[in-house]
Nucleic acid binder design. Sequence first.
DNA 1: AATAAATATGTCAAATCTGACATTTTGTCA
DNA 2: TGACAAAATGTCAGATTTGACATATTTATT
Lengths: 102, 102
Amino acid sequence: MDKKKKKLLETKGFKVGSVDEFLGLSREESEYIELKLALSQSLTETRKKKKPTQAQLAKMINSSQSRVAKMEKGDPSVSVDLLVKSLLAIGVDKKSIAKAIA
Amino acid sequence: MDKKKKKLLETKGFKVGSVDEFLGLSREESEYIELKLALSQSLTETRKKKKPTQAQLAKMINSSQSRVAKMEKGDPSVSVDLLVKSLLAIGVDKKSIAKAIA
DNA sequence: AATAAATATGTCAAATCTGACATTTTGTCA
DNA sequence: TGACAAAATGTCAGATTTGACATATTTATT
């Protein structure tokens, strides 16, 4: 799949609402992006609720501030795996993850 | 996290039910494993319902039969990303994915 | 039982993702 | 305004994941 497109859409401006078929995105592509955005948002929300800074969260999940920033920004270099692991690490359970992406 | 443990638990025998604290697994670890297993199972189920063989599915998602087999078996070398992408490719939508892991 | 079809397992080079670091931008408070 | 903290962005070597292939095992079909 075209990385440019993905990068474009995962960037500011498209945080909210559905990206369905904005540009020739297939159903799978847009759902995948939406799913990642949902996880990103959930991570940001949860972190802010719980208090810590990106740097502190980074320590909890032994990662780095810059990677946390990328996660929260929906950077294409971040995998769903990492998002899920981070959410679990920060105390969000499966059920809540499911709710976030539903 | 200990890869041996993960490998062990993701192997036959533990497809059903909760793996919580069987061996010293943390909450995050067990939830992560359970989440992956849920996706694996969902993939197998959906594929069988929809008809194609692993080889045919592999083509649809341009992967290979062997990797599909690993996905369905919950092999540790398979990422959540790939599982999610495969589910989406086979026609399962976000909502159903959410339901599967809830 | 024999054959074929489907699935499982092992391996590996190439591709992707990762933490870490440096640097820049944005936000906050005096 | 300036100075300080938090967040964002770029880069990259090392780690992990990938498709592909070979091969073995299981399952169906005759």
